[in-house]
Amino acid sequence: MELVSSSKAFGGQQRVYRHDSSACACPMNFAVFLPPQAEVGPVPVLWYLSGLTCTHQNAMDKGEYRAAAAANGVAIICPDTSPRGEGVPDEPENWQFGSGAGFYLDATQAPYATNYRMESYIRDELPALVARELPLDMSRQGIFGHSMGGHGAITLALKNPGRYASVSAFAPITQPSTAGWSRPAFEKYLGPDEAAWRAYDATLLIADGHRVPDLLVDQGTADGFLQEGLRPQLLELACTTAGIPLTLTMREGYDHSYNFVSTFMAQHIAWHAERLIPA
């Protein structure tokens, strides 16, 4: 790992690293906040997955997570949202696909299958790397995210039981296989057979028997993507049917921006800490 930057905050360290990724076949950047407790020993890990058009920088600059992370003694890791760079296939004119829009899946279709392997990157490669290099307790991991990242957090937690002790989301895309802004991306990444899409759809994973112990979701009522893209009622129905405890809070007047995310960030981190740190 190459240290790109490091800055002290709330007694801890906000860092950015770069490394060569075998999963994505290109260099990748990620941000990590190490709370002051990491100077004493390994700390629990919270993975934060960002949304469409974002990089690791958005949450680092706008998420306002450091004070809560330091208070609760948890590390926050913010990976990038897609592979990037020369030779990585992209559609620069399309903000819902390509660079910044990896959807946390492993693409199977040419020419995207070589680089767009974000599920393998988040699930396997990056955890193995940080476990070797940073003071992290990988037996205590949680995951959360926003929008596309909320979709990624929930699907990764559902498919990897025992890996993540906690999962939450801000305004997640709950059923990307039928949402207008994600269906075209799924077809390009995964092909026209919609049966292959089920592995990356939270509601369908739940219908197929995947489970998490409980789930926390916040959603703004003034979110412009609420009715056509996000549709939390579909996740609520799936969880109710499956008996998964879901705390879904509709936040009156909040939109889809980081003003919304940062408002409730500390509550989410505290919720995760309750599940990651023994009383």
Rank of each mutant, 00 (worst) to 15 (best):
K8R: 14
A9Y: 12
A9Q: 15
F10R: 03
Q13I: 13
R15S: 10
V16D: 01
V16E: 13
Y17I: 01
H19Y: 15
D20R: 13
S22E: 15
M28N: 00
P35I: 08
Q37F: 02
A38P: 04
E39W: 03
W47L: 12
Q57C: 02
A59V: 13
K62P: 00
A67R: 13
A68F: 01
A71Y: 02
A71Q: 14
A71W: 01
C78A: 11
T81H: 05
T81N: 14
S82R: 06
S82A: 15
P92Q: 04
P92K: 09
P92R: 02
W95A: 10
G98K: 03
G98M: 06
G100D: 02
G102R: 05
G102E: 02
D106N: 15
D106C: 11
D106F: 07
D106K: 09
A110N: 09
P111Q: 04
S120C: 09
S120G: 14
V130P: 08
R132K: 15
E133D: 14
L134S: 04
D137A: 13
I143M: 07
H146E: 08
S147C: 12
L158M: 13
P161H: 10
A165K: 15
S168H: 07
A171R: 00
A179K: 07
A179S: 15
A179H: 08
S182Y: 05
E187A: 13
K188L: 15
K188G: 01
Y189Q: 09
R198L: 14
Y200G: 07
I206W: 11
A207F: 09
G209K: 07
H210V: 03
R211N: 06
P213F: 04
G220R: 00
T221C: 10
D223R: 03
E228W: 05
R231Y: 04
Q233K: 07
A238D: 10
A242D: 11
M250E: 04
M250G: 01
Y254I: 03
H256S: 02
S262M: 04
S262N: 06
A266Y: 00
H268W: 01
E274D: 15
L276D: 02
